[in-house]
Amino acid sequence: MRRVLRGLVAGAAATLAVTAVPATTTAQERHEPKAPPQFVALRDVDPTILQEMRYRTRHNFTGERIDGYRQPLCVVTRDTAAALRRAQRTFLRQGYSLKVYDCYRPQRAVDHFVRWAKDLDDQRMKAEFYPRVDKTRLFDDGYIAAKSGHSRGSTVDLTLVRLPVLPTRPYHPGEPLKPCYGPQRDRFPDNSLDMGTGFDCFDTLSHTLDPRVVGAQRANRLLLKNGLEKAGFRNLPEEWWHYTYQPETFPDTYFDFPVTRHALRPGR
């Protein structure tokens, strides 16, 4: 266990070194809203949890970097971070690590999603993320909304990775896209366990307990679900990757500070 922890911490530290915040700040950063003191960088609480922050990249359902994600950083409330740390300790003993895809999400990012969903001509990522859903249905079917629980700071999108962690390749914009619900060998490569669909797959197969998902895929979803529920999280039934820590620190507040270390209070 100690060897595993050292390896995971070393990998996280290397990533942190690459994404360190410059000593100077811009005028824009000085005038941006700041996070309340209850928010922390997950890496400061548990550096062993893997982070693949998809909305900081172009590999998401819009095909572009999302507004507000200034750094590839998981930010959550302190209570949520502590709960993730508890869950991670349990998963590590079983030979797995948590990997987060998204954490706190600024309201400006949600607004970006809404603008994209209204632009019916932009279908560049349809073949991967919503091949069986007409884009005109994204609001009515609940895939896109004007508000997100992520903006309150207690919701995370995450998966499990088997140890030792295998590398995965980056997304290359313009590469051929494969349906997110296809067999794992045909989907975009991800080092996570096979959950039956990729992350952010707009399809009913993403429903956590969809009866068509059986065997190892269902077992993997239940492994994630049971471990997180024991740590105090509640799953969104329509998305196997979506969990909210209960009780939420800010159950009624939607924040809009950017995802950057500069937005966090010193010492957080």
Rank of each mutant, 00 (worst) to 15 (best):
Q88E: 15
D119V: 00
D190N: 14
L166T: 12
V161H: 01
Q123G: 07
D111W: 10
C180V: 02
L84N: 02
R218C: 03
A219W: 03
R124Y: 06
K135E: 12
K135I: 01
R185N: 08
A216C: 00
S151C: 09
A87F: 02
H150A: 09
G142L: 12
A216L: 03
W116R: 04
V114K: 05
P189D: 10
R187E: 10
G149D: 15
V161E: 06
A83I: 01
P179H: 02
D210S: 12
P189Q: 09
R93A: 15
F91C: 07
L158P: 02
D190Y: 08
G196T: 09
L158Q: 11
T136C: 06
A87K: 06
R85M: 06
R78L: 14
P131I: 03
P176D: 05
K135M: 11
D194A: 07
V161P: 05
P106S: 13
D194W: 07
F129C: 00
K99G: 04
L205Y: 12
P164M: 11
T136L: 10
R218F: 10
V165G: 07
S206D: 15
R137A: 09
R78K: 14
S192D: 15
D134N: 15
S151L: 01
P170F: 10
G95E: 09
Y143W: 15
Q123R: 14
P173F: 11
P211L: 06
